[in-house]
Design a protein around this nucleic acid. Structure first.
Lengths: 242, 242
DNA sequence: CACAAACGAGAGCAGTGCTCTTGACATCGG
DNA sequence: CCGATGTCAAGAGCACTGCTCTCGTTTGTG
């Protein structure tokens, strides 16, 4: 299985790896539209048509890189989460969100690839749907542990989820979310949305001349979102209330 | 002034307008990277090099289109806001956010241009910074009216803004925000971030197989954000509390 | 051993952004 | 009124792109 039989297959797998490695480097330097199959081939010392033996088109190579990027950020978040004590819920939540931001800042072009404008005529294939949900899964796992520990206390002064969300909530509850109310599930999606919105805004320059200490502002937003879904805030961040 | 003197100047202005119109149509159809100077020229019945007399490079044409897009969405929001009674604060807030979403859904490629991945080596020039803040200004205006009416009641169970935000808050308070606390200003920025994050997620397919009734979910998120900044919720959405 | 599949190399097609030169035209000063 | 000046569209051309096709050659297998 893992040990490819023939030398040809081993060479093929190795070459695919090399192509992806070079492509990823070029992607990191020049961005998605700057990724050139010919340039990749040139750097590898072969001719452009040879690359087409391994990736039938430029978009296929791009798709492979997108999947790698999803895996990369997904693994970064999961590793961060796994390194923390399970009972430190808010610490895990904050760390996971920070991991997303840190990864994005370290890999701006790859982040743009997976959370930015889809390339020209490029439609995200089905293969990219599953890895895209990994980060959401990690955050949902924290919610699950919070629910199991009985510490989930969502604020009651927010509007109720719309009735049309009930079916979605039921499906999500079956697959990745703990058995919490529709409200909490939708708020978790809102939080998930915000995290990526904030990272995108920061990366695409929207906070220029607006927010200086973006790391601190990001943490603050993440804690606000945690409060919204019902996670207990750390003592230092809990406001004075009677 | 407005009446250009020579026939040559008039012809030039007219041609610039035509180029931008054709380019915008092509942009709407094929996206940013699908915008081809040669194709624009072809459709206008002239040769590619002639276009360079009016736009020194493809990026300059793109920049012009970006500015137009900012103006377009900015005007859409402001017109929406102006059409509502000033005292209907939450109605204006909701309508403005909906206007952003509606515009983005109607002009996905242009939205991607201004809030998606920056094009390859393209760095957003200074001209695009000012029009980018128009939408934020509209939302801040609602906050201003709410503060003036004395109905701003931000929840107290959220963490306080970090100290490092004080300088930014002071500057923003001088320019576009009403004299409210640092907390409220930062929460408004969080809300602003969320709105665009949600629109981007929807547009880029992140809600596929997650949220079905995206309009309702968007409204719900917008109301949650309104509650977070302290706007009074409409009666129908206010949860039962004592 | 023979045959088929896989392979690298090269030529070629249609397209791109952009530059440079050329010749026609309009505008303005003397 | 006429010539100098500047603007214009057009075309050729450069370097690049994704992609296809055809060559021999190499490699693995029946």
């Amino acid at each position: 299985m893992s040990a490819s039989r023939t030398a040809r297959e081993r060479a093929r797998a190795e070459l695919i790896r090399e192509i992806k490695a070079v492509a990823r480097r070029q992607l990191a330097e020049a961005g998605a539209t700057g990724l050139s199959l010919r340039a990749v081939a040139r750097e590898l010392g072969m001719v452009s048509s040879a690359v087409y033996r391994y990736f039938p088109s430029r978009d296929d190579l791009l798709t492979a890189l997108i999947i790698e990027a999803y895996d990369d950020i997904g693994e970064a978040v999961e590793r961060t989460d796994a390194a923390l004590p399970r009972e430190d819920l808010i610490g895990r939540w904050l760390a996971c969100c920070r991991a997303i931001r840190d990864w994005a800042l370290a890999h701006p072009h790859e982040y743009a690839l997976i959370h930015g404008t889809p390339v020209p005529g490029y439609a995200a294939p089905e293969e990219t749907v599953i890895p895209a949900s990994r980060n959401g899964r990690a955050l949902a796992g924290i919610l699950r542990d919070a629910e199991a520990a009985g510490v989930l206390a969502p604020p009651t002064d927010l509007p109720p989820a719309p009735a049309s969300f009930a079916e979605d909530a039921a499906r999500l509850r079956e697959h990745i979310f703990p058995p919490v109310s529709d409200d909490v599930i939708l708020r978790a999606l809102i939080a998930w949305t915000w995290v990526y919105g904030a990272v995108s805004f920061e990366l695409f320059g929207m906070y220029r001349d607006v927010i200086t200490d973006r790391a601190a502002a990001f943490d603050h937003g993440v804690l606000c979102m945690a409060r919204m879904v019902g996670l207990p805030l750390p003592d230092g961040e809990r406001p004075a209330n009677g």
